[in-house]
């Protein structure tokens, strides 16, 4: 297998390098890629969509249809991880473990034993050795709100600076994942329940596709945001800008929820216990 792999890789590489011979030089301003479509995008974007960040404009307006399916890809990734891994009817282990938060002492409750009351004093854990570190927990608790604030900024400011729904959504998702890593998955799932993930993820895609479908219902083509002008009481060009913001929010919601959903399923192999 190793030799076959080597042969295939060398042959493919040789073919690809052979193809590069006729490429224009790197960073050549006169290359077809830089002269065919991109001048239109660069020169007309402000006029046609009033969004200074051209990447955002192309992403969410000129090629918005691609981006809708990109959101769908990540959504279907989330659903696939869920359907493959999630175990619903899992029998409870005979012994349950609890940790007394203040002292760090672990207690084991045999089957039929009295379970400690649902309070802040005790937390449920799944293995005897569950790491808990005061410094890490506290630092992360301090950091997470700022990470989330930054995520919101990145989503909202995608029109004017690098950013947008995907980046912001990933940052928001990472904040919950940080909680799951620094504490444990149970804590993170208590903050953001599985059902919330599973509802937000399609909702985000729905905001995106629904905006497109709304344009269709308003009489123009699918994803033609200028149709929104009559709903938003603005001129068609500004309507495009607003339309981009709406779909970016949809993308942000979908990506955040799906990333968390995938993480929860992967890290606990679908059992939703402490994870990792």
């Amino acid at each position: 297998m190793k030799i076959i792999g080597l042969i295939i890789a060398v042959l493919t590489g040789a073919l690809l390098i052979y193809g590069t011979v006729d490429f224009p030089g790197w960073a050549d301003p006169a290359s077809p890629a830089s002269t065919h479509l991109s001048p239109h995008f660069i020169e007309k974007t402000m006029e046609e969509t009033s969004v200074p960040n051209i990447v955002t404009a192309v992403l969410a307006d000129y090629r918005s249809y691609d981006t809708m399916f990109e959101t769908t890809v990540i959504f279907s990734g989330g659903v696939v991880c869920f359907i493959l891994l999630r175990i619903f009817r899992r029998k409870e282990p005979e012994d349950r473990l609890y940790r007394h938060v203040l002292t760090g002492a672990t207690i084991r409750v045999k089957e039929g034993g009295k379970i400690p009351p649902d309070s802040d004093d005790f937390e449920r854990i799944d293995t005897l050795w569950t790491p808990h570190d005061l410094i890490i927990k506290t630092v992360c608790r301090l950091l997470i709100p700022f990470i989330q604030l930054f995520g919101l900024y990145v989503i909202a400011h995608g029109h004017h600076s690098p950013g947008g729904g995907f980046q912001g959504g990933v940052i928001l998702g990472a904040s919950i994942m940080l909680l799951a890593i620094s504490q444990d998955l149970r804590t993170a799932v208590q903050r953001m329940r599985e059902k919330v993930d599973a509802l937000l993820s399609p909702t985000g895609v729905f905001i995106y596709a629904g905006t497109g479908a709304l344009c269709l219902l308003l009489g123009l083509n699918f994803m033609d945001y200028s149709a929104l002008a009559s709903v938003l009481y603005v001129d068609p060009v500004t309507a495009r800008s607003h339309g981009i913001l709406i779909v970016e929010i949809g993308v942000g919601v979908a990506v955040m929820a799906t990333i968390i959903w995938i993480y929860n399923n992967l890290s606990s192999a679908g059992k939703y216990d402490e994870g990792l």
């Binding site: 000129y62 249809y65 699918f222 033609d224």
Partner: peptide, 10 residues
């Protein structure tokens, strides 16, 4: 799609 003419949009 999106009302953009072909090579620009999809």
């Amino acid at each position: 799609l999106g009302g953009w003419d072909p090579p620009m949009g999809i």
